[in-house]
Amino acid sequence: MSKRVAILTSGGDAPGMNACIRAAIIACQKAEYTLLGYQHGYNGLLQQEHVSLSLGSTHNLIQQGGTILHSARCKEFKNREGLMKAADNLKQAEIDTLIVIGGDGSFRGASKLSEHWDGQIIGIPGTIDNDIAGTDATIGYFTAIDTAMSSIDKVRDTADAFERIFLVEVMGRNAGFLALNAALSSAADYVVVPEFFESAETEIQKMVTQIKAQRALKGAVSFIIVVAENVWPNGLAGLTEALQQHDISDVRPVTLGHVQRGGSPVAQDRLLATTLGEHAIKLVGSEATNIMVGEVNQHPVTVPLSRTWETSKPLNDARVEAMRTLMNERYSE
Rank of each mutant, 00 (worst) to 15 (best):
L113H: 05
L113R: 08
S114F: 03
S114K: 14
S114T: 07
S114E: 04
E115I: 07
H116E: 11
W117D: 10
W117H: 05
D118L: 09
D118A: 12
G119P: 02
G119R: 00
Q120V: 00
Q120S: 00
I121H: 01
I121R: 01
I121F: 01
I121W: 01
I121E: 02
G123Q: 08
G123K: 01
G123V: 07
P125H: 05
G126H: 12
G126L: 12
G126T: 15
T127R: 05
I128P: 09
N130E: 06
N130V: 03
N130L: 05
N130Q: 04
N130P: 04
D131E: 14
D131I: 10
D131T: 06
D131N: 14
I132V: 15
I132K: 15
A133D: 08
A133K: 15
G134C: 06
G134D: 10
G134F: 02
G134K: 12
G134Q: 09
T135G: 09
T135Q: 07
D136C: 02
D136F: 03
D136G: 01
D136M: 11
A137R: 15
A137P: 05
A137W: 09
T138R: 13
T138H: 11
I139K: 07
I139L: 13
I139T: 13
G140Y: 04
Y141T: 04
F142S: 13
T143I: 12
T143K: 14
T143D: 03
A144Y: 03
I145Y: 14
I145V: 15
D146R: 12
D146H: 10
T147L: 10
T147W: 15
A148E: 06
A148K: 07
M149V: 15
M149Q: 13
M149Y: 06
S150D: 11
S150H: 13
S151N: 06
S151D: 05
